[in-house]
Structure formats: C-alpha cells, structure tokens
C-alpha cells in the first residue's frame, strides 16, 4: 500500500523517523504556540500594545500565530503535505482568497459604520 508520508517540517530543518514521531513533534510545537498565546494574552506586555497597521501589535502576533497553527494542523494532521499539488491548491487557494475578500469588505464596512456613528449626525437609525 502506498502511504508515503513526507516526514520533514520547517522546510526540512526537522526530519522525523516515522509518521508517529512527526505527529508528536507537531503536537509539541502546537502546544508551545498555544502556551505563548495564552501567556501573552494574560500579561499583555505594554511594549506590544502600540498600533501597527491600524491594529495593536499584540493582535497581529495572535493572528499570525493562529495561521501558523492552522498551517500545521492542515499540513500534518490532515495530511495536506502528502496530497497532490492540484488538490492542495483547489482547497487552500480557493478558501484563502474567498476569506480574505470577505474579511476585507466586512471589516472595512464596520469601520465605516463606526465613523458615521462617531462623526456623523446619524445616531441609531441604520
């Protein structure tokens, strides 16, 4: 049976001997990332509260770490790493493009509505 697994993560920096070992390795990595998120979330270091590109620096860190976690769950737990390029792109590119588009319009619109409430004369009727 052909169940070939690609056993290296971090672009070949870390290579595991078996698929089981890789699973535990990824678990350790995901746990560390979650722990970092929780610690940052509890202590909220003052230095990271500055605004970067319209959002708190800390929030950017959270979002990037979330995407990192999502990548490893999809690539190693869901075995996306072992699928063909075609399937991978059909699933991942479609989703990412549509989500980015949706998030962009909705957040843009939300910010606009906030400004109308704040600066405009309209208060509650739209």
């Amino acid at each position: 049976m052909a169940h070939e697994h690609k056993l290296e993560i971090f672009r070949g920096l870390l290579k595991f001997k078996s698929n089981t070992q890789k699973i535990w390795g990824v678990l350790i990595f995901l746990s560390i990332v979650t722990a970092v998120e929780v610690v940052l979330g509890i202590y909220k270091p003052e230095s990271l509260m500055k605004h970067v590109l319209g959002m708190k620096g800390l929030n950017w860190i959270f979002i990037i770490l979330t995407i990192v976690k999502a990548y490893y769950i999809t690539w190693d737990f869901m075995h996306m790493r072992d699928e063909t390029k075609g399937l991978r792109r059909a699933v991942v590119w479609t989703t990412i493009f549509l989500i980015l588009y949706l998030v962009f319009i909705l957040l843009q619109e939300g910010g606009y509505v906030f400004n109308v409430y704040k600066d405009g004369f309209i208060k509650r009727d739209f």
Partner: peptide, 15 residues
C-alpha cells in the same frame, strides 16, 4: 469565516 467576519464587522462597528 462568514460568521467570524460578521463578528469582526460588529466589533469594528463598536470598536
């Protein structure tokens, strides 16, 4: 993501 983006919309509305 539709739900979460809607959440983001409301949050930006009452930021």
């Amino acid at each position: 993501s539709g739900f979460l983006a809607a959440y983001g919309f409301s949050r930006f509305k009452f930021i």
